[in-house]
């Protein structure tokens, strides 16, 4: 399964997306917690957050979530079924195709907002 083939790439992407999502999660809990400091502080912070580099970053986090979710399902199927191991490579390509498809749909929704706003 490993030795630089699909399984190892699946693992590397799972690890990278997982670390990115977890770091985003910590940041996201912090930024929403700023709502406790009232509208002035919170709105000033959000204006900073709504700049385009952060919005591009958010698209990448969402894409990471889609990959991590689908590949997580693949891992669960591999761990708990016999047939899952035999089709893990096919499932990974399926994960990539669905991630790309949902990724483009999300781009089509959010990129015009960034350009327009």
């Amino acid at each position: 399964m490993y030795r630089g083939r699909e399984g190892q790439w699946a693992f590397i992407l799972h690890r990278l997306s997982g670390i990115a999502i977890a770091l985003f999660l910590l940041l996201h809990v912090l930024d929403i917690s700023l709502v406790m400091y009232g509208p002035k502080v919170f709105n000033a912070f959000l204006a900073f957050y709504h700049q385009w580099p952060f919005r591009i970053g958010l698209i990448m986090v969402i894409a990471g979530v889609v990959y991590h979710s689908l590949n997580g399902l693949r891992i669960i199927i591999m761990d708990f079924t016999e047939w899952g191991i035999h089709v893990q490579r096919e499932m990974w390509y399926g994960v990539l195709v669905i991630t790309a498809g949902l990724g483009f749909a999300i781009l089509a929704k959010i990129v015009p907002e960034i350009i327009g706003g």
Binding site: P39, N43, G72
Partner: peptide, 29 residues
């Protein structure tokens, strides 16, 4: 594995409400 399965639904709903149903730039206090 168990929390991952639960999170797929919770996070999908969270992203849907915060990024798809609205423009995330409209989020304010």
């Amino acid at each position: 594995r168990v929390s991952g399965l639960i999170l797929i639904f919770l996070v999908a709903g969270h992203i849907w409400m915060g990024n798809i149903q609205i423009n995330v730039a409209d989020v304010d206090y």
